[in-house]
Design a protein around this nucleic acid. Structure first.
Length: 259
DNA sequence: CGTAATGTTTGAAT
DNA sequence: TATTCAAACATTAC
């Protein structure tokens, strides 16, 4: 379930488990998952994961030998750290550690990727990753929005502009901002753009909190009601669905009128 | 059985 | 040249 908040959770999970464990062996039985050639991953033998950082929906893990292991979770990627011979179903990449534990990287839909690179900055440039959604300033955000003609939802989901926001939380940010997802960026005034900017941080941090402590989202959130015909959490009618910016979007036309 | 699913990349259209 | 859009990718679940 990986947008920025989920990847923050995976970072916490990896930090609490696989970090600083000596790697005994690497298994990569599914070539499709590998963003870099399989042979490169064998370099990890004897190495250790040193520290991790999240950028957008990517998790960068620096190793003691100065390489960087990069995880991207696609739509269904997940970690599982435990002992035992039998890997979980859909395991396509495994780090085996000297302590007999393993970090399994699973992904039923095989859209996840794992990379091993020498220079994380080169990777970032190659993949054209924009500023992290939690690090952009209001000024930068307004600058990035200037002159854009596409939908606001498409703008929020474009990883080259701002990275970390996907289908679910772009809908939530726009619901909280009372902006229809199909509204063109250049049809929004500064006040509306600033409200969206504030809600990016607000929503992402709130969702991250709920991922970290398994708490539920506020009553006023639309995320739990992503179903056409569901009642708007503000009591303003029914949730509608439409394909916007290539993805299924849920919104309330009464709260979020089209411009 | 058909359709949609939390994402990114590619190539075409604007 | 830059931006936007739709389709493709692989597989599962409803």
């Amino acid at each position: 379930m990986p947008e920025l908040p989920e990847v923050s959770y995976f970072k916490k999970y990896l930090d609490a488990t696989a970090l600083h464990q000596k790697i005994r062996k690497v298994s990569a039985p599914e070539e499709l998952i590998l963003g870099t050639k399989e042979v490169a991953f064998q370099q990890l033998q004897g190495d250790q994961l040193k520290e991790s950082r999240r950028l957008g929906k990517y998790l960068f893990v620096a190793t003691e030998n100065r390489n960087t292991l990069i995880f991207h979770f696609g739509m269904t990627g997940n970690f599982e750290y435990r002992q035992g011979e039998e890997p979980p179903k859909y395991t396509y990449f495994t780090l085996h550690f000297e302590n007999d534990f393993q970090l399994f990287f699973t992904c039923p839909r095989k859209l996840a990727r794992v990379y091993l690179v020498e220079d994380a900055e080169v990777f970032r440039k190659e993949h054209e990753l924009g500023q992290d959604a939690l690090e952009a300033s209001e000024e930068e955000f307004l600058e990035l929005a200037d002159g854009r003609r596409g939908s606001m939802k498409g703008f929020l989901m474009n990883q080259k502009i701002i990275s970390g926001i996907g289908n679910l939380y772009s809908d939530e940010i726009l619901f909280q901002s009372r902006i229809h997802p199909a509204t063109a960026v250049n049809d929004l005034n500064q006040k509306e753009l600033k409200a969206i900017f504030r809600n990016i941080e607000k929503v992402l941090l709130r969702v991250t909190k709920s991922k970290m402590d398994s708490s539920s989202l506020p009553q006023s959130y639309i995320t739990p009601y992503r179903k056409a015909g569901a009642a708007c959490p503000r009591g303003n009618g029914k949730i509608e669905k439409a394909k916007i910016a290539g993805r299924t979007s849920y919104f309330c036309v009464n709260c979020q009128p089209a411009k």
